[in-house]
Amino acid sequence: MGRNEIRLRKQRLNPRRIARYRNYTKLLRQHHRDSRWRLVIRTLTYILIVVFLLIFFLIVLNWQKKRNPDIANDSVSSSLYRSPGNSSRMEASNQGVKNNRGIASPTGFSLT
């Protein structure tokens, strides 16, 4: 068994026979059709990328909105209870409640 198939032809291809397959108009038409398809596919790809990025951006924005109030509350309360002057401020507010009989806020200001 050979590696390739070799055929010996008696005659050359007739140029007239070849001319039957030569059709530049057809080739040009196919080229325009292919170009149009390529353009459509490229445009669709760009649109899909933009839509994907937009969705991703909206998801991130939504997630941040949900997460932000918790983060804000957490940071306020933790800063209050961890600050060095926290104990004296708390005492002062307690004093204020005793003296004014008003409602003391955690920041030390009393509401009467």
Binding site: G2, R3, N4, E5, I6, R7, L8, R9, K10, Q11, R12
Partner: peptide
């Protein structure tokens, strides 16, 4: 397998 078709005249 690849086919090679050669004109006898050319050979």
């Amino acid at each position: 397998e690849k086919v090679f078709s050669i004109e006898e005249v050319l050979v």
